[in-house]
Design a binder for these strands. Structure first.
Lengths: 155, 155
DNA sequence: GTTGAAACCTCAGATCC
DNA sequence: GGATCTGAGGTTTCAAC
């Protein structure tokens, strides 16, 4: 995977502003537009760029509550892990699900419109799910940092 | 702030594909291009849309490791909380920092290029930070779900 | 006050060097 | 990687509902 310094700069700029026009991008990285566009397309096709997304203010759109849920299962057999993942995949309010090592099997990021609806998701969809041993939740008081993706090394 | 069904559909579509052209967007929401563009601009200016970002494949770009760190502080005075937030704000590998209720004060999402560099971040920048009582970390085995932002209600 | 139509002008994408 | 060209899209203006 040969990313030269121009590729990395392109990725950095697009991670920061995904709607930057190709001519702007080209100028910033010191190319003309056509080769710059070719690089962007190549980055998209190889999967280095997985997509582009608008960042939407959750509170403004009716989701002021973000909760992290630490879930432990009774069985860690692959079949049971996958079943749990499939289940949370169907819950729209569960935005992220990461399998972890250690005592906690999964950490989930959940958004909700209010505490009652969070409780509803928890009691109706999460705690009673098959194989769930324990669910510990913590409300987000505030988010101090939320950068997209990854740092881009310039060296 | 009144978002009608067209605004919500615009937000949903741009959250899914932030580079969709305005004419495509307009067609999908049943408008012509100019009023659609005005709505998008209004959503940007009111802060409903906070920005646009390319989603970059972390592993491909040299960050195969994602770790969640649960941090507890000795003092929860606002000054000390803010000092910790300011400190993690300067660590590029810390991508998210959320203040939580309960025993854990903060949850951090950290990316790293390998376990040694993760250990380095942990030992050099996190554990010895002022006021840190305990740091418990869990490696991400796999990410089963990672949707951007929030669900958009159509009703 | 918001939509839609038309004009303009910039950009994306293709071709060739 | 760069130059040129064409068609498509972004953006503004203005009229109409």
């Amino acid at each position: 995977m040969p990313f030269d310094s121009i590729d990395r700069r392109i990725l950095e700029l697009l991670q920061d502003d995904g709607r930057m026009t190709n001519v702007d991008l080209a100028e910033r990285v010191g190319l003309t537009a056509p080769p710059c566009l070719r690089r962007v397309r190549a980055l998209e096709e190889t999967g280095a760029i997985r997509g582009y997304h608008a960042e939407i203010d959750a509170a403004t759109l009716g989701y002021p509550i973000t909760v992290f849920a630490m879930v432990s299962l009774r069985s860690q057999a692959e079949h049971d892990l996958a079943a749990f993942e499939g289940h949370v995949g169907t819950i729209p309010e569960v935005r992220e699900c990461h399998m972890l090592n250690g005592e906690i099997d999964f950490i989930l990021k959940i958004v909700a419109s209010d505490l009652k609806s969070f409780q509803d998701i928890l009691m109706t969809h999460l705690t009673p799910a098959p194989n769930v041993a324990s669910v510990k939740t913590s409300l987000t008081i505030r988010t101090a940092k939320a950068l997209p993706g990854i740092p881009i090394r310039h060296t």
